[in-house]
Nucleic acid binder design. Structure first.
Lengths: 203, 203
DNA sequence: CGCCATCGTGGCAGTGAGTGCCAACACGGC
DNA sequence: GCCGTGTTGGCACTCACTGCCACGATGGCG
């Protein structure tokens, strides 16, 4: 320990600042037309420092997305072997999505901005997909460890399936709001989960 | 018409050549340690020409993967509304995977090399994931058009789910063969599909 | 308060991916 | 033979990203 909270707080603050500025600039002029130097300057740091906070240009705009994932990860602390894995994952996601729905929270508003940007920015979407894949891998490893599975195939399928439901839901959400339509995030998520479970039956 | 077959044939040949060389070099020295200039030179073209064939360095090594996808796409010509979508997708994939299994074909051997490389090369995996996402989007659009769906949510879920099963299967395959173990590609795929359909029940 | 270890930051130089532009050349039709 | 089209290579350029080093701020400690 002896980790001075000041440093940590400043670090988080700088990270937020860079992330906010990046998102703003990406929205205004597009990802390709925005240089790292521009973002860094607007955030009051050097471009060299930018890369100490984010590995890539796109990663800076994904801070709200990381927040979402971390929230889920924290809530998944109590993963029990009692109930089906998919049920537990969906419960957590349902709760988290509730908190992020529409303008209910600042985090939700930020997430919506990112997801809308992703609709027109392939590079950003790719970065988000890569991030998602990492999270899935981590989660699978964690589940396999916690449940002491000798074969992680079913766990991987379940986690990936849950991720698909969430991704599809968020895309719908962003797409609808992009056209001015209003959708119920949770209702859409419920639909996605239902279709997922109905795969065994009809099509 | 009037498309001189010679040009086309040459183009394909050059593409193969670059792809082969790229895969070879990536295997030998790693993706990061290999420059585009190196690949281009080894393939007998300029680096400027390289980028007329492939948008990124990683894309060059994914030629075998594109072959796989194109094969699937061709076989999906006869998509009918009669049977559940997932069933039809799985049928096609089962057939294609059979053709690519182990050393049964040159295409299969190449695919295995790529998938093994992906295990240790994050950049390559990311590129493959991005490619996969594009294919999924195309396929969803095609299905929605063919079946005249007003809501593509169930179709998207089905296509994404099918993609998950394949991806997981290929990863297992590469991972096992990487450790010298031998796995039955089709049996693994059958397992994955089964777990997918059992999501509604247990976990 | 002042000394010292540690860490974050900026500047700088360098690599290499990816792009626009133009001239040279090969093809295929006439 | 000539000409329109498509392909290639070279050049110059931008910019993402990295290693290195010196400087300044922070926080512990006497």
């Amino acid at each position: 320990m002896s980790e001075p909270a000041l440093r940590e707080r400043r670090r988080r603050q700088t990270e937020r600042e860079i992330g906010d500025v990046a998102l703003e600039l990406f929205e205004r002029q597009g990802v390709d037309a925005t240089t790292v130097d521009e973002i860094a300057r607007a955030a009051g740091v050097s471009s060299r420092t930018f890369f100490r906070y984010f590995a890539t240009k796109e990663a800076a705009a994904l801070v709200p997305h990381v927040d979402l994932d971390e929230r889920v990860e924290r809530m998944l602390a109590e993963l029990g072997p009692g109930r089906p894995l998919l049920d537990q994952l969906e419960d957590v996601w349902r709760e988290v999505l509730t908190a992020f729905d529409d303008g209910r929270s600042e985090a939700g508003r930020l997430l919506l901005r990112v997801r809308r940007l992703m609709l027109t920015e392939p590079g950003l979407r790719q970065a988000a997909v890569a991030l998602d894949a990492e999270r899935v891998d981590e989660l699978v490893a964690r589940v396999a460890r916690a449940m002491q599975l000798d074969d992680d195939l079913p766990a991987r399928i379940a986690v990936e399936a849950a991720a698909v439901a969430v991704r599809v839901t968020l895309d719908r959400w962003a797409d609808a709001r992009d056209e001015g339509r209003r959708v119920d995030l949770l209702a859409t998520y419920a639909d996605a989960c239902r279709y997922l479970r109905e795969l065994g039956g009809p099509g």
